[in-house]
């Protein structure tokens, strides 16, 4: 059931994990460089592009320091597979961590995915979505979702519900766990092996 659509969800997060700003340039926007700290501020917003990874970041306010961080408000991150929007975004180059709040995502496959916060651990190919994780199509609600794109695994933690046509599937307890694996077929189990649960839950705890 359900999990084919979750596969699409995982595909969507590939945008995030591919979203490594290896090198970027300012496409437009006023820049103020603080020579003391090396931090560039774009107080009226602007656009950063990473041509190598096909990424484009827009924000109403952007601050960055080369090789250290990018911070943006009302940010939109456009990739080839869809668009991420966030009330705030912070990318830390060391550890390749992307922190988001007020996350919204849309692509041709997944409509209206939102969550309170998001964390991309790009070096480890892991994305965590936490707090009111919802998507309109497919209809999914969860409290925490951990996606490991390298291993093609996703872990749902806490209560969740998924609707598809005439059937629906729910995890009704706060300690619900559902491991979804994307191989030749999508499989899922609530009996999550302890090592997998420990590894993926530790990612969730970082957010």
């Amino acid at each position: 059931m359900k999990k084919n659509a979750l596969l699409l969800l995982v595909a969507s997060t590939l945008v995030l994990t591919a979203g490594r700003f290896s090198s970027f340039s300012v496409e437009s926007g006023e820049q103020e460089l603080d020579l003391g700290t090396g931090v560039t501020t774009m107080p009226k917003g602007g656009v950063l592009v990473d041509n190598r990874n096909g990424l484009r970041l827009e924000g109403s306010y952007i601050q960055f320091k080369q090789e250290e961080f990018i911070r943006a408000r009302n940010a939109t991150l456009r990739g080839s597979d869809g668009n991420f929007a966030a009330a705030s975004l912070e990318y830390v180059f060391r550890g390749e961590q992307l922190r988001l709040s007020g996350v919204r995502y849309s692509s041709s496959a997944v409509k209206g995915l939102t969550s309170n916060s998001g964390l991309g651990l790009l070096a480890e190919n892991v994305v965590v979505l936490k707090g009111n994780v919802r998507s309109q199509d497919p209809q999914l609600e969860a409290s925490t979702l951990v996606i490991d794109t390298a291993r093609n695994q996703a872990l749902v933690l806490g209560g969740f519900s998924y609707k598809d046509g005439q059937s629906s599937f729910k995890g009704q307890r706060d300690d619900s766990t559902l491991l979804i694996e994307f191989k030749s077929k999508t499989t899922a189990t609530t009996k999550v092996p302890a090592d997998v649960l420990g590894r993926l839950r530790s990612y969730a705890n970082k957010l």
Binding site: S167, S168, K170, Q172
Partner: peptide, 10 residues
């Protein structure tokens, strides 16, 4: 209806 995991079928 109170089972930890629940599927609604037709």
């Amino acid at each position: 209806e109170d089972a930890p995991y629940l599927a609604e079928t037709p």
